[in-house]
Simulated scan of single mutants.
Amino acid sequence: MYEKHYPEKRFNITMEFLKSHAHSPSTILDLGVENPFSKLMTAEGFSVENTKGQDLDVDRNQLFSSSAKITTAFEIFEHLLSPLEILKSVQSEHLFASVPLKLWFSKAYQSKTDPWDRHYHEFETWQFNWLLKKAGWEIIEAKTFTHPVRKIGFRPLLRLITPRYYLVYCQRKS
């Protein structure tokens, strides 16, 4: 486990999951701009190319032109209007993706200060599985995990026991 290396539980779980199926120095196309996790993947020996901040709902050219064998999409699909089109456009053979799960006790996330930082989708596991299958991906392994917060109250207690994230490793169907 990577708990001693990374400050966030989801980083630890995601890195362990990634490294159980992909080995450095694999080349990765990471959907989204450079971020703390893409920097961690680079530090772990992966060769990471990030998308350039373009609106992937409109401009998918980089997805078509990338020669990376692995694509990662960690917590990005919830921000996109058309995740099906993005998933169909990925040219890699392997996909690692995570999405926040819909929580019955909490509304979808919407930043009060950043108009781009909001969730158009929060999935149930069956919905994301269906989306992946429809886009031509076969799920090899999947896992859910919680993301507790350091607060006191009923919702923080629910976050301690209710899975918040869904993480999958997929291969392109032949």
Score class of each variant (00 low, 15 high):
S26K: 12
A43W: 11
L63A: 13
E141N: 08
L80R: 04
H121R: 09
L29A: 07
F64Y: 12
S67W: 10
W130V: 09
K88Q: 15
E124Q: 14
K69R: 09
A43M: 11
T71V: 10
L131Q: 01
L101G: 08
P25T: 04
Y120L: 14
F145G: 04
F128N: 10
P115D: 14
S82I: 15
D117M: 09
W116E: 15
T72G: 02
G53K: 00
V58E: 10
L87E: 07
W126F: 13
N50I: 06
L63D: 12
I28M: 04
A108K: 09
L40P: 03
L80G: 00
W126K: 13
F37L: 06
F46V: 00
A142M: 12
D117G: 09
S66H: 03
E85C: 10
Q54A: 03
A22R: 11
L56R: 07
W130P: 07
I86R: 02
H23Q: 15
F77L: 10
E124I: 13
L63W: 11
S89F: 13
Q62D: 10
P83T: 01
K143I: 14
S98T: 12
S92H: 07
V48T: 08
T125D: 14
I139F: 00
E78N: 06
L18R: 05
L103S: 06
T27P: 12
A97H: 04
V90R: 12
A108T: 07
T125P: 15
L131I: 06
I28N: 06
S65C: 09
K39F: 11
I28T: 05
P25W: 05
K102H: 14
T113W: 03
E141D: 11
V33R: 08
F37H: 02
E85Y: 15
H119S: 05
W116K: 15
A108G: 05
D114V: 07
V99N: 08
E122C: 03
W137I: 02
L31V: 07
L103M: 08
H21R: 15
L84I: 03
T146K: 13
V48L: 08
Q110H: 12
E44R: 05
